[in-house]
């Protein structure tokens, strides 16, 4: 188990932290934009940078341990194989007397084990780098965007293998990335950092549906962010903005005042048939389809009306409602699809 207590460091004027978190045997993704301090955090954990605060690994304080004493494996963006050693020599580098044959088998390296590392493909190089890191029997594996430069298919295969091997070996993994889709597909837990500070720390699904603030909402790809005001009318709570009024719920504890909301694009219902609200608790927006993009397993539908809103629809929904560009549609926004976030 890794524990960070009030860890803080700096690089020039940039300050990382203080950051505190605990991780168990899980696949933790550190997510953030370029320059957020993700790689710096990994450098601190790996022991390449001095820090304030304390770091514990499996109950032992390692804050002042040099990297070679920490037993923390690291994979960087480039495979960084030792060019003067062949595949097997690279893997054996940190293995000592440990048997690496099962690892070579598991990572499908046997076929090119004797080859010069300079003759390997990108995917093969990262497999070797992974095997080399695992061969040193680490207690924690750090991945600093190691697969970002691979083609999508190879990347997904290797990432799947990393996750399954980590599970098999009960090895905790911290994986740094700026790609939210990658984070969603891999993470047991996500920590989002911005400007050296933790912004949100939770399960992927929770972060996606309940972003802590506008930054997280935008970073996680939510296109529907609106500024307005909370208005309490009796027991009903509304979000109001110019000529818009959305019912948010009854039990929510809000007071009148400015706020920001996000609307989850996958929770919207689009109807091509006229739809009139029957009571103030139904949120319906009329608009015209301004864009329609197929994203692989869903459609991204842009609608412009009183507000500009984006909905994610399944191919079946698009077909059944016959959604086409320039068509007039009605967007039904369930109150539970609206989240009030901090801001303003």
């Amino acid at each position: 188990m890794l524990v960070l207590k009030e860890v803080k460091t700096s690089a020039g004027r940039f300050v990382l932290g203080p950051i505190s978190f605990e991780m168990k045997r899980e696949y933790l993704i550190i997510l953030g934009p370029s320059g957020a301090g993700k790689s710096l955090l990994l450098e601190v954990i790996a022991g390449f940078r001095k820090c304030e605060g304390k770091i514990f690994l499996n109950g032992v304080e390692i804050t002042n341990y040099p990297p070679e004493k920490r037993r923390i494996g690291l994979l960087m963006q480039d495979p960084l194989l030792f060019p003067h050693k062949n595949v097997i020599e690279n893997i054996k580098f940190g293995a000592g007397t440990r048997d690496i044959s099962s690892l070579i088998e598991k990572l499908k390296i046997s076929a090119f084990a004797d080859r010069d590392v300079n003759s390997l493909s990108g995917g093969e190089k990262q497999r070797v780098a992974l095997a080399r890191a695992l061969a040193s029997n680490p207690l924690l594996l750090l991945l600093d965007e190691p697969f970002s430069w691979l083609d999508r298919e190879t990347r997904e295969i290797i990432e799947g293998e990393v996750k399954s091997i980590a599970n098999e070996l009960h090895l905790p993994v911290i994986h740094v990335t700026h790609n939210f889709e990658e984070a969603l597909s891999l993470a047991d837990r996500i920590i989002i950092i911005k400007d050296g500070k933790v912004v949100q720390d939770s399960k992927p699904e929770y972060i996606f549906k309940n972003p802590a603030n506008e930054f997280v909402a935008r970073f996680t790809g939510n296109p529907n962010i609106y500024a307005g005001n909370i208005r309490v009318e009796g027991e009903r709570i509304f979000f109001v903005r110019e000529n818009l009024k959305f019912f948010l719920g009854k039990t929510v504890n809000f007071k009148d005042g400015p706020c920001q909301i996000i609307i989850c694009p996958q929770d919207l219902i689009i109807s091509s048939h006229p739809f009139q609200p029957k009571n103030p608790e139904e949120n319906i927006v009329e608009g015209v389809v301004s864009s329609l993009s197929f994203m692989g397993n869903f459609y991204k539908v842009g609608i412009e009306g009183k507000i500009k809103i984006t909905a994610y629809l399944s191919p079946q929904e698009v077909k059944s409602e016959n959604i086409i560009p320039s068509k007039k549609v009605f967007v039904i926004i369930p109150p539970e699809a609206i989240k009030v976030i901090d801001g303003i």
Binding site: P67, M76, F82, P83
Partner: peptide, 27 residues
């Protein structure tokens, strides 16, 4: 020589001295 090669060597358990003789010097 990419200094990250030396960093990787350290994470694999090699001391700075070993890293110099096993990685830097041969390169």
């Amino acid at each position: 020589i990419d200094p990250r090669l030396e960093k990787i060597g350290r994470t694999l358990g090699a001391s700075p001295f070993e890293v110099f003789f096993k990685i830097t010097l041969p390169l």
